[in-house]
């Protein structure tokens, strides 16, 4: 299954945020989307999920135009930058709503370490972030869009979650934006760089490392 977004144009108050962007991803593997703050990465994710209506866009799944991808059952999930679960919902209710299997529930509980009866609002910031991310990763979906999933997570928690993202990418396409670029680079199979509303695809990890954005960070290169 292939998701394609063509000609995505977003303008806010006369400022062009996305300029005729072309993006594609498969329903397998991890796609890393890099770029500076305000370059338009999150806007692209919102446009893909119909969270935001662009001035112009054409989203297709295997060549078929889709107006609101989120409405197709089991097609797409989206983790926004802020928490999205209602505060009053309990962890076990959230797991049931998203049809999380028993095995996956055990994995999530092992990583996040919550009590089943606890409300989502009772979790710490990092627990809540990882809980929301893992629920989406283990839900029935062909594409998962993660907007800064590692924000607020401890390095140990990130280390535990990265193999799970990689494992889940065997049967779903995962798109990640995060400023923890070394972690994203480590797990990505495909690479995009957003620069002032223009999207460029890079064919290899070395190519994107040499890009102007990542090249400006000296630390972390091995």
């Amino acid at each position: 299954m292939k998701l394609v977004a063509e000609g995505v144009i977003v303008e806010i108050q006369g400022n062009r945020i996305l300029s005729d962007v072309y993006f594609h991803m498969e329903d397998k593997g991890v796609t890393g989307l890099f770029g500076r703050n305000g370059s338009g990465k999150s806007t692209l994710l919102k446009a893909l999920f119909s969270e935001f209506k662009p001035q112009w866009s054409r989203i297709t799944i295997d060549g078929e135009v889709v107006k609101s991808p989120y409405l197709i059952q089991g097609l797409m999930k989206y983790l926004p930058q802020d928490s999205f679960f209602p505060s009053s919902i309990r962890c076990r209710e959230a797991l049931a709503l998203f049809n999380i299997s028993h095995n996956a529930q055990e994995i999530i509980q092992g990583i996040v370490g919550f009590l089943n009866g606890a409300k989502v609002s009772q979790l710490s910031l990092g627990q809540r972030r990882s809980f929301e991310m893992l629920v989406l990763l283990y839900s029935d979906s062909k594409f998962v869009l993660l907007d800064e999933p590692f924000t607020g997570l401890s390095p140990i928690l990130i280390e535990k979650i990265i193999p799970l993202i990689k494992e889940q990418s065997k049967n779903k396409g995962i798109l990640i934006i995060d400023h923890q670029w070394s972690s994203v680079l480590e797990i990505s199979d495909r690479y995009y760089l957003m620069d002032r509303g223009n999207l460029k695809e890079y064919l290899s990890r070395d190519q994107i490392r040499e890009s102007s954005y990542l090249n400006s960070f000296k630390e972390g290169f091995d």
């Binding site: 999920f49 119909s50 969270e51 609101s68 989120y70 409405l71 197709i72 059952q73 089991g74 097609l75 999930k77 989206y78 926004p80 802020d82 928490s83 999205f84 679960f85 209602p86 709503l97 998203f98 989406l136 839900s139």
Partner: peptide
């Protein structure tokens, strides 16, 4: 509060 995303993630219009 971003909770529309919750409904959208459940494919609810």
């Amino acid at each position: 509060r971003n909770e529309f995303v919750f409904f959208k993630n459940l494919s609810v219009s």
